[in-house]
Design a protein around this nucleic acid. Sequence first.
DNA 1: TGCTGTGAAACCGTTCACAGCT
DNA 2: AGCTGTGAACGGTTTCACAGCA
Lengths: 222, 222
Amino acid sequence: MIEKDPPESVSEATTHRLSLLLRSLRVLDGEKVGTISSQQLAERFGLNSAQIRKDLAQFGEFGVRGVGYHVPELKARLKSVMGLDRVRNVWVVGAGNLGQALADSKNFNSEGFRVVALFDSDRRKVGARSRTGVPLRDVATLKEWAAKEKAEIGVLAVPADAVASVALLLRDAGVRAILNFAPITLAPLPDVVVKNVDLTLFLENLSFQLAKSDAGTRPKGG
Amino acid sequence: MIEKDPPESVSEATTHRLSLLLRSLRVLDGEKVGTISSQQLAERFGLNSAQIRKDLAQFGEFGVRGVGYHVPELKARLKSVMGLDRVRNVWVVGAGNLGQALADSKNFNSEGFRVVALFDSDRRKVGARSRTGVPLRDVATLKEWAAKEKAEIGVLAVPADAVASVALLLRDAGVRAILNFAPITLAPLPDVVVKNVDLTLFLENLSFQLAKSDAGTRPKGG
DNA sequence: TGCTGTGAAACCGTTCACAGCT
DNA sequence: AGCTGTGAACGGTTTCACAGCA
């Protein structure tokens, strides 16, 4: 099992598929499956076997020819490659419905991540705790907390017009990656990894596809 | 201004960019900007001018040579292309924190979409209303409601193990598009548009990029 | 002149198909 | 024999650069 240095750049598509692959491996591991081939993986989870092998090839050689992949081993390797072999603290800024839901969600408190605080500018919320006990702090004190409690990831669930300023605040507080849920594109900041997730866009995507299928069944087009 | 029939297939990337473009046009329209060139659009919103033109070209000719695009006109055309020129009813299944947050969010009740109901299997929740007044119903009654209140879009915010069965329920209730937020891939259903949005994956994406930059600054790799 | 719309070129990601190892 | 790892072929998307029109 040879390990490679990660390539200069890995495509978004590969990154996404590695997450899906890891999810699949967790399922298999839970079922005590010891070994699996890329073919079997593909069939079971709706993936593509050649693509699995190509994706993995970017990071090393993880399989055994004639046999396949050792599930626990590959799972551990993949977690390492993806930086999920340790826990990163997460700050959620914006304690509205979405911010609180994210802060409390299993998704954001699973292997690799732990939401340690919510921040909001509404003084009335400050001092309280979320349903699962995440402390709610004044966003004005964010920078002070940076010294006591290092958070590498910031999640933005604030109104669009607050995004730019809060992003700078987070960067100055040492946050190295920002996940922005506001419906505005946060431009890349130097030395900070930025990912924009506009939930509206997913709905619009569906709408667009519905519109296409509507057009396809109209008398004239059909 | 010539209109084209939509092409057989439009890439995910184009779909995504059209949403971003529409968002930009909404901003410009709010500022009463009457006309704008692809170049100006690109500079202002971090897009690519050639790409804007290529994306639009798939659906017709919307600009004026030597001038650019008429903002209100293009915005209206784009909304039409994306099926956002009418309001679609949305059902949210799963009234946990995330489900309720989505049902109440501006994002899911903006131009083109209206959340008309939440469904849950927890009898204790049934009969109540969300903060913004969305009625909470028993998921067992979902099919009965289909006759009274047509919903084209279903949003899944249920546990992973409930996804497959609820998806079938929605399909049988006439829902034509499903947005799945559970951390499991919902396989495509015939005649239903499916979009999977696993929030965990966005965090893992950040983790992965952090891991890469960590590796890049390690003594040996640096 | 200025900008769109668009062929052509460059680029990137996916799929194929097989050499090579177990 | 079986399956990985990988060059090579393929297909799709992005970028370039300019013809054509206002």
